[in-house]
């Protein structure tokens, strides 16, 4: 049996006064790729943000690599360093002066105080290799404010890849990539899970991609409507429960 990288048990998260996610439980194994699908407002981003400790949870447990995430969102740094997160909207102040090399290097360093010039050689090498992997080596010295949406995504992906991880959490990651970039992106994800055993949890609206690439699917509508292999989870009945019957009729006709 494969190692359980992420275990979520009866997770409930409130936003303002309503439960955005309620009673959600699932497990994610090493070397597998799980997609979270659901309509807008179904709680997909809330779920991953609670798993990462960005949002507080009101009930339930989250275990990452066997270690519990505390109510205050704390995880041992050795575990944190095994997690990479690619947010849905990387909104940042474009006046911040930072190059792609610097951004990617931020993902390489260990947590905790250290001298900025420590391990400079190894850091440079790791950054270079990560950028090469996402075909963005030419962007290294560019300020991130000058990047297009797709280039920014590549730079962020390099930030995730700059050191070995065990869990990759993606919130609508391929949005903004062109057709070639998207294809390379899924190829890369496949390599990471097959060759390096990364567990991947990704939010997606692209049901065809989910059917084609993912091992398991969670259907979320604040509650967990279903989970399982794509053929089961994306059946017309389950899709109707998540998106409504009109959506299933429309999808069938097209």
């Amino acid at each position: 049996m494969k190692e359980i990288v992420l275990s979520v048990e009866k997770l409930t998260v409130y936003r303002e006064t309503y439960a955005a996610v309620q009673d959600v439980s699932f497990e994610l194994e090493a070397g597998t790729d799980m997609a979270i699908v659901g309509s807008n407002g179904a709680g997909k981003s809330t779920l991953v943000q609670a798993i990462l400790g960005i949002l507080p949870r009101q009930a339930g447990e989250v275990l990452i690599l066997g270690r519990p995430l505390t109510r205050r969102g704390h995880l041992p740094s050795s575990i944190r360093q095994q997690i990479a997160y690619l947010p849905q909207n990387f909104l940042f102040d474009r006046r911040i002066p930072i190059t792609v090399n610097e951004l990617v290097a931020l993902g390489w360093d260990d947590l905790g105080p250290k001298l900025p010039w420590a391990n400079q050689k190894q850091r440079r090498l790791a950054v270079r290799q990560a950028l090469e992997r996402v075909d963005a080596l030419h962007l290294g010295t560019q300020p991130i404010s000058r990047l297009s949406g797709g280039e920014t995504k590549r730079a962020l992906l390099a930030y995730c890849l700059v050191r070995p991880r065990r869990l990759l959490i993606l919130d609508e990651a391929p949005a903004g990539l062109d057709v070639r970039g998207e294809s390379e992106f899924y190829q890369l994800l496949y390599q990471l899970k097959q060759e390096q055993g990364w567990a991947i949890l990704q939010i997606s609206h692209d049901l065809d991609m989910v059917r084609k690439h993912c091992d398991r699917v969670l259907c979320l509508n604040r509650f967990l409507r279903c989970q399982g292999a794509p053929d089961y989870a994306l059946s017309p009945d389950n899709l109707a429960a998540v998106y409504g019957s009109d959506f299933v009729r429309y999808r069938h006709q097209h």
Binding site: I54, H74, F90, F92, L106, D109, L111, L115
Partner: peptide, 24 residues
């Protein structure tokens, strides 16, 4: 600033990303 430069930059750039990487 010197010893926490990485944390300070990440926090300035994108707070959710900083929290996800374990920065308090």
């Amino acid at each position: 600033v010197g010893l926490t430069l990485r944390s300070q930059i990440l926090l300035t750039l994108h707070e959710p990303l900083a929290i996800a990487s374990g920065i308090a």
